[in-house]
Design a protein around this nucleic acid. Structure first.
Length: 276
DNA sequence: ACCTCCCTGGCC
DNA sequence: GGCCAGGGAGGT
């Protein structure tokens, strides 16, 4: 299987095209995309005319800093993807937000299910947004196993949904939570507080390894192609998934059929033999 | 610390 | 037609 070049969406792909550009237009076709913006008109008002500085990320929230202390936040929700286009390029269906730059580059947010959103926040808005409650970033600020152990200590909920709680650790979604638990050899149903220190050490390494591998292969584009890289390519990590979406298929390690169970309303996959 | 709901498209 | 889907907020 051809190996994709290393891709890291927010830094290597989006940032060079946005850095130092001045926003010249901001158009939102689906008002719902602005539901996290206290006053909808603020979005365009706060973006247009401002120069883009740092482009970063905390968990699943894309954060673009603009001059004048404005933070432009983008979240892809479940079906959102960013596309970088040139003004005048044909629009694909469900292009809900277009932010135009003086360079001619357009940031487009395509999101059929509209669970994603955009907002332009002042420092005060940020304080009251969900970003303020995010835990450490799973990729850039992964806590030590000691701290992770402490965070899980008083949680009776199963470890799987606990990994999805963005206030504990920011960035893991349903696929990567299942994959990390698979790598760590831990059953998703285990109460978070029951994890022994060596298991937390394994889990920490597994989270790191899973995210690194996901990025290396360009992310997980499922059959619906809801997620694509900003340049339109499909991520190839789906071919490498150990458990997610593989119910009934043999475990890549021991051959036991992968099981699926709904845990806290989320589809959960694991190998009953390798994970305990 | 849970469940429900928000949306639309695709598949069975 | 019904069910499912990578996420998160809001209400209880």
């Amino acid at each position: 299987m051809p190996e994709l070049p290393e891709v890291e969406t927010t830094r290597r792909s989006v940032e060079p095209d946005l850095l130092d550009a001045v926003v010249v237009s901001a158009s939102v076709r689906r008002p719902r995309m602005l539901r996290r913006q206290p006053h909808a008109r603020d979005f365009a008002d706060r973006l247009v005319g401002r120069r883009i500085g740092h482009v970063g990320r905390h968990g699943k929230f894309l954060k673009t800093e603009l001059e004048g202390d404005i933070t432009w936040v983008t979240h892809l929700g479940m079906s959102g993807r960013v596309s970088l286009a040139r003004a005048g390029d044909p629009e694909v269906a469900h292009t809900n937000v277009i932010v135009g730059m003086d360079s001619g580059v357009e940031f487009r947010l395509i999101d059929p299910r509209t669970f994603g959103f955009v907002a332009a926040y002042t420092p005060e808005d940020l304080e009251f947004s969900s970003l303020a409650a995010l835990g450490p970033d799973a990729l850039d600020e992964l806590p030590s196993s000691g701290r992770l152990h402490a965070a899980l200590e008083n949680r009776s909920a199963p470890i799987k949904p606990t990994l999805l709680d963005q206030r504990i650790l920011a960035g893991l979604g349903n696929i990567y939570a299942d994959e990390a638990l698979s790598r760590a050899g831990i059953a998703p149903q285990r109460p978070a507080q029951s994890l022994e220190r060596p298991e937390v050490v394994r889990l920490r390494r597994a989270i790191k390894g899973t995210l690194a591998a996901g990025l290396r292969y360009g992310g997980t584009s499922l059959d619906d192609l809801a997620y694509l890289l900003p340049d339109g390519r499909a991520g190839e990590y789906v071919k490498r998934l150990r458990v997610y979406g593989r119910e009934g298929e043999p475990c890549r390690t021991c051959g036991t059929p992968i099981r699926r169970e709904v845990l806290r309303q989320r589809s959960t996959h694991w190998c009953p033999r390798c994970q305990s």
